[in-house]
C-alpha cells in the first residue's frame, strides 16, 4: 500500500525534529548535475556529484541513520542556486568537518580562504599550511574534500597550469572555473 506524501513528509520532519537521525540530505538540481547535499545538526557536511554513491559515503561517515529531509537543506540549496546564478561569491553556511582527519581539516581551512575567481596550486596551498613539500598530501585532501564547491577545491590546479584532476570530473572543474571567470575557455 502506498504511503501518502503527507504522511511520508510528516515522518521525515518528525524524525529530524526528534533528533533521531545522524544526517539529513536531499538532491539539488544544478547546472553541473544533480547533487546530493547533506547536513548534520552542526552544519553542511557533504556534497556529492554521484548521489547514489554519496548516500553510502554519508552513511559511513555520519552514521547510518540518514534520511531525506528536504527542508533541512533549504539554506544550502538557496546559496547554491545563487552561486550558480552568479549572484553569490562566498558561502555563509555553517560547515561540519568534524569527521575529517586533522591534517585534511587544516588544509580545508586554508582552502576556504582561496577567493572566488582565483586559482592556486597544490604546492602553494601546502606552503600555506606550513608543509611546503606536502603538495601530494594536499592533493589527497582535495580528493577527499567532503564539501566540494562550498570548499572550493576546484580552485586548486597544477603548477604547470593544468587542471590536474577533480572528484566530479574535469568537465565540472572547468565549468566552475568558467562560471567564476577564472577560465576564459
Amino acid at each position: 500500500m502506498s504511503v501518502s506524501e503527507d504522511l511520508d513528509n510528516r515522518f521525515r520532519e518528525a524524525a529530524a525534529a526528534a533528533g533521531l537521525i545522524d544526517a539529513a540530505f536531499d538532491l539539488a538540481d544544478t547546472p553541473i548535475g544533480t547533487l546530493l547535499v547533506a547536513t548534520t545538526d552542526r552544519g553542511l557536511c557533504q556534497i556529492s556529484f554521484d548521489p547514489d554513491r554519496g548516500l553510502d559515503e554519508l552513511s559511513e561517515a555520519a552514521g547510518r541513520r540518514v534520511l531525506r529531509v528536504p527542508r533541512r537543506i533549504d539554506a544550502a540549496r538557496r546559496e547554491l542556486d545563487e552561486y550558480f546564478e552568479g549572484r553569490r561569491t562566498a558561502f555563509d553556511l555553517p560547515l561540519d568537518v568534524s569527521r575529517v582527519p586533522e591534517f585534511q581539516r587544516v588544509v580545508l581551512h586554508e582552502l576556504a580562504l582561496v577567493p572566488y575567481g582565483e586559482v592556486t596550486t597544490y604546492g602553494a596551498l601546502a606552503a600555506r599550511v606550513g608543509k611546503p613539500r606536502a603538495a601530494r598530501a594536499v592533493g589527497g585532501a582535495m580528493h577527499h574534500n567532503p564539501i566540494p564547491i562550498v570548499l572550493p577545491c576546484h580552485r586548486v590546479i597544477g603548477a604547470s597550469g593544468s587542471l590536474t584532476g577533480y572528484g566530479g570530473g574535469l568537465d565540472r572543474k572547468r565549468a566552475l572555473l568558467k562560471l567564476e571567470g577564472a577560465l576564459l575557455f
Binding site: L55, S59, R65, V66
Partner: peptide, 9 residues
C-alpha cells in the same frame, strides 16, 4: 551490511 536508513525506509 546494513544499508543507509533512507534505503531501508
Amino acid at each position: 551490511t546494513v544499508p543507509p536508513f533512507e534505503r531501508f525506509y
